[in-house]
């Protein structure tokens, strides 16, 4: 199992995340850190600050007022949401976006992931979830396993992509056939390595089924559905053209209003356009 070995080695030698994120994480774990200090840590990275403010001001968060400073962003979005945005930006920049692949490139994957992030959060809001802070990140992160493949076994992944084209099968099946594991499993390895919250680890490992064991939780159901919606609306490209069948249980967990998809469609596409522009630009 050469491939799996390469992947595990790669995960163990992951690129270090940018300073701003590691400093921020540490500061937030310390109960004595003041919000001024947190604002200062983030503001020290101008490029990150600029992007965070743009994200915070996008209609996605529904904040009509101007967010001019990191302190305001922390106030209106909450510490965890801001930390998650910093994290998302960090990982997007940690991996090479411009690897040359035919048909399916890391940039396509990021666009798809942001699309799923948008859809997931809108679904969560629509079902009345009070705590949405991990929804956007969970959506962005759900397919991180594919990035592991792009980064550490690119030649094998190129074969996977070719198999998708020739046999017209979902990418997760092609991954299993050629690599011996799919991106859900690879993603789980990386999520555990980075010590992400268990809820996010579960998303990565189980977003295809939408279930952990026999239990459905709202966040997982939202990502499961968000992935399907993002594919339906062609928000980025996840490696194949399939629109998977939703797990029937998600409709019991997610009490969405009738007509939700039709009415949310435009907002999802608009938010997706804006956020990809902000988050994927150099």
């Amino acid at each position: 199992m050469d491939v799996i070995k390469k992947i595990i080695e790669g995960v163990n030698n992951l690129p270090t995340l940018p300073t701003v994120y590691t400093n921020l994480s540490q500061a937030m774990e310390n109960p004595n850190t003041t919000k001024e200090e947190i604002a200062r840590i983030i503001s020290a990275d101008q490029a990150a600050t600029f992007k965070i403010l743009k994200v915070a001001n996008s209609p996605f968060y529904g904040l009509r007022g101007r967010i001019d400073t990191i302190t305001q962003a922390l106030l209106y979005l909450g510490f965890n949401e801001v930390k998650n945005i910093v994290f998302a930006l960090s990982i997007i920049n940690a991996f090479s976006k411009n690897k040359i692949f035919k048909k399916f490139k890391p940039l396509d994957l990021w666009a798809h992931s942001i699309g799923v992030g948008v859809a997931t959060r809108l679904i969560g809001a629509a079902v009345g979830e009070k705590n949405l802070e991990n929804y956007f990140l969970a959506g962005i992160f759900h397919d991180i396993g594919k990035l592991v493949f792009f980064e550490y076994v690119p030649n094998d992944y190129a074969k996977v992509i070719e198999l998708v084209e020739s046999k017209k099968i979902p990418i997760k099946d092609a991954e299993l056939e050629i690599l011996g594991l799919n991106h859900a499993r690879a993603g789980q390895l990386i999520a555990e390595k980075w010590k992400l919250p268990q809820s996010v680890v579960n998303i990565v490992s189980s977003h295809h089924t939408g279930l952990i064991g026999n239990n459905v939780n709202t966040l997982l159901a939202s990502v499961h559905l968000g992935d399907i919606v993002a594919r339906s609306l062609d928000l980025g490209y996840g490696g194949d053209n399939f629109i998977p069948e939703p797990n029937i249980k998600v409709w019991e967990i997610l009490k969405l209003p009738k007509g939700f998809f039709a009415s949310a469609r435009k907002k999802m596409k608009d938010d997706y356009e804006r956020l990809t522009k902000i988050m994927l630009s150099e």
Binding site: I228, S232, I243, W251, L256, K258
Partner: peptide, 23 residues
């Protein structure tokens, strides 16, 4: 039909098919 290989089982799934078709 190349992309959706399943049949909708309820109104929600019908809606999903509709937005996919619209797209």
């Amino acid at each position: 039909s190349q992309r959706v290989t399943w049949r909708p089982k309820n109104d929600y799934e019908n809606e999903l098919i509709e937005i996919a078709t619209q797209q």
